[in-house]
């Protein structure tokens, strides 16, 4: 049956943003797809949304710290602001994934990324709760 429907043909070799059923957001170049919406993504990265501070440059502390904990650390002068800005980042973190194949069953949304709009996004200032997983 010829698919006159919403195939992904028009998005091949374009940058797309995929939302998976477990709530992740993966951005990359669409190289291929099939009937079941399985897709091949090239040069992809994950955008991790969080309302918490994420620890970078430091292996001593646990990976994620709650805002309340960080607030209390700063208030008690346990750590300096300078140290904080060195090892803690807020906003959207980007994880490099590379070549990725995503099974169609796990895909919720495939969005065409408007590169101009995307360049204007200040990811370091975007804070949001991670997306909820899809519950079937």
């Amino acid at each position: 049956m010829a698919s006159a429907g919403p195939g992904l043909e028009s998005l091949v070799d374009q940058i797309i943003s995929v939302i998976t059923n477990d709530g992740r957001n993966i951005v990359g170049t669409l190289r291929g797809f099939d009937q079941a919406t399985n897709i091949i993504l090239d040069e992809s990265h994950e955008r991790v949304y969080s309302t918490r501070y994420v620890l970078v440059n430091c292996d001593l502390l646990p990976g994620l710290l709650s805002n309340a904990l960080i607030g209390s650390l700063v208030q008690n002068s346990a750590i300096s602001n300078k140290f904080l800005s060195w090892c803690l980042k807020e906003g959207v973190q980007q994880l490099v994934l590379g070549l990725y194949i995503i099974r169609g069953d796990n895909i919720s949304v495939v969005g065409e990324v408007d590169e101009e709009l995307d360049a204007r996004l200040d990811l370091s200032n975007l804070r949001a709760h991670p997306l909820k997983p899809v519950i079937h």
């Binding site: 919403p6 992904l8 998005l11 943003s17 939302i19 059923n21 957001n25 919406t37 955008r47 949304y49 169609g104 069953d105 895909i107 919720s108 949304v109 495939v110 969005g111 065409e112 990324v113 408007d114 590169e115 709009l117 995307d118 204007r120 996004l121 975007l126 949001a128 709760h129 997306l131 899809v134 079937h136």
Partner: peptide, 18 residues
């Protein structure tokens, strides 16, 4: 505001199953 995850998306494909 709650879901800024698709701010740079103007066209999208939604899988029927979700």
């Amino acid at each position: 505001d709650k879901y800024p995850h698709m701010l740079s998306v103007r066209n999208c494909f939604i899988r029927g199953s979700v």
